[in-house]
Design a protein around this nucleic acid. Structure first.
Lengths: 84, 84
DNA sequence: ACAGTATTTAGATATTTGTCTAAATAACTA
DNA sequence: TAGTTATTTAGACAAATATCTAAATACTGT
């Protein structure tokens, strides 16, 4: 839960999730959507992956990333308890 | 949205929300639930208030804080778009 | 007016975070 | 094998964050 909120607390990472919502993308394709360096994007992908919000699968030289929305259910549940 | 995720990205602040879910509390009563200093709690309350997740109303020397869960709808909506 | 209580503001400090460049790893291609 | 491409890892650095103590503000009651 801690990791999820941390992962969501960054505009770049939220945008990455929005991109991956539409389609799976490689690390490079994701980086092309931003003006920050590839190592920085790689770092963001690492944080998203640690939170289990995305998964990366290596295919040759590429790593294909996909979103995992099931983990968001934990957030939904927690938020719902606040609304009683 | 930025402010909400920032506010939620801290264990102490999430616990404060859980406390306020049950009942309205004064700043001092909230602080009594934690082992950190009152100024630190005051700072957390400020961040929660800026995110509009709580509201404080002054009554004499006390400030009564209450939760505002309607703002969470924005988070729900955003999270739901990720699940398509 | 004075002393006590509730809370915040100010300023300092250590830790975490996001970013960068340079280098390393891994895979493809000729 | 050598060169190119895709991605990550390592190390440095500035900005943001959480915390603290001390002081300021505001209200209460005598």
């Amino acid at each position: 839960m801690k990791d999820i909120f941390k992962a969501l607390n960054d505009e770049t990472r939220r945008e990455i999730l929005e991109l991956l919502k539409k389609e799976d993308l490689t690390a490079g394709e994701i980086a092309d959507n931003f003006s920050i360096s590839k190592p920085s994007i790689s770092h963001h992908l690492d944080i998203l992956q640690r939170a289990d919000l995305i998964a990366g699968e290596k295919k040759g030289q590429f790593i294909h990333y996909s979103i995992n929305t099931t983990i968001l259910d934990d957030v939904f549940t927690w938020l719902l308890t606040l609304k009683k």
